[in-house]
Design a protein around this nucleic acid. Structure first.
Lengths: 183, 183
DNA sequence: AAATTTATGTCAGCCATGTTGACATATCTT
DNA sequence: AAGATATGTCAACATGGCTGACATAAATTT
């Protein structure tokens, strides 16, 4: 009954003199709250799509590929590898399925015929749009509480959370080509 | 040279009349930008910890367990399962390692001697503190650009992104017991 | 007191998605 | 012609999800 546990987050951040060599933030300054909010927010954010993807026999990996191919039509395989930061073998597996099942098509590059430029098919657009719709609904509900100015603040915060050294082609586009990155 | 691809995100969201049955947000209203920012921000956010965890032979799963046990001392195994939304078999694997290697200890519940209440050891506190330090550094860098008022906006946004139906014990605590949830 | 339910642990095996290493092919560059 | 690059593929392995079955101890119910 008493439920002695769950006595709220530790009042004294590091009772036992632990927390040896903390990143660089000193004890007591740690952003525990935001760390947890990010965990839960992201979990539920991707959870929307995860559920729907099951019905298609796809997973999160397929979603990521389809998303970026849709958003950046003509993306090269090499660029996709950069963005997703996975190996070509991992990508190959999911990409093959998306190709076989007609969600994505490849076109041979005009300049460089070795390249395979990727495009979402109408079928692929439909799926990625449905998933984005669900995620947008969640974002819109959250945005309704903070207004347009707040939305810009959130955008600013999220952009500042992203590593900007060695940006891939997508990040270059997002950040308006601040850095040239590898060609 | 010409690099014909990467011609920026599709100007017309759904050229081919695709996007059948979008979530509920209509085409054109989709929050593509925020969806992508969340992806990249979260990737780099957890990337910090991932890198460090490798040196300990641990993965993201261990981090999550250690984090919540540290933050909510005396957490029951059942509560942890609720929070992480994984099966007890999956939890068992990583929890066993954390116990064996002395990052976490179990204490038998006082009221209910079937329960195993979990606590981080000083060793565990040290690791989780180090990881939180790195993540805090990143958050602080981002916060520096939006100020204290902006930080509150971000907190509000993230909270609103989280599902509030059927909250687990941790979310109950975070949201100040808005809902009683299951006892 | 006996029966049942609950909290936890554990064995065995499957699946998705990440990894490394090796190697093949076509095409572009030198 | 030789070498570098873009892509694909085979094989094997690791992590961390999953299901199903079953065991134990302790609490609760009958």
């Amino acid at each position: 009954m008493a439920d002695i546990n769950f006595s709220r987050p530790a009042a004294q951040p590091d009772s036992r003199g632990a927390e040896v060599s903390p990143g660089s933030a000193r004890a007591g300054e740690l952003r525990w709250d935001i760390i947890e909010l990010l965990f839960f927010a992201y979990r539920d954010f991707v959870g929307d799509a995860d559920h729907e993807l099951e019905a298609f026999g796809f997973g999160r990996a397929h979603h990521r590929v389809l998303h970026f191919v849709h958003r950046y039509p003509g993306l090269k395989v090499a660029d996709l590898l950069d963005v997703l930061r996975i190996t070509k073998q991992s990508l190959g597996r999911v990409l093959k399925q998306l190709l076989d099942e007609g969600y994505i098509i490849q076109k041979t590059g005009n300049n460089d015929r070795r390249q395979r430029l990727l495009y979402a098919t109408p079928k692929g657009e439909a799926l990625v749009g449905k998933l984005a719709g669900m995620q947008t609904d969640r974002i819109n509900r959250a945005i309704a509480e903070i207004g347009p100015a707040g939305t810009e603040t959130v955008r600013q915060f999220l952009r500042a959370m992203i590593d900007r050294d060695d940006p891939d082609k997508v990040l270059e586009t997002i950040f308006g080509s601040g850095k040239p990155a590898k060609t």
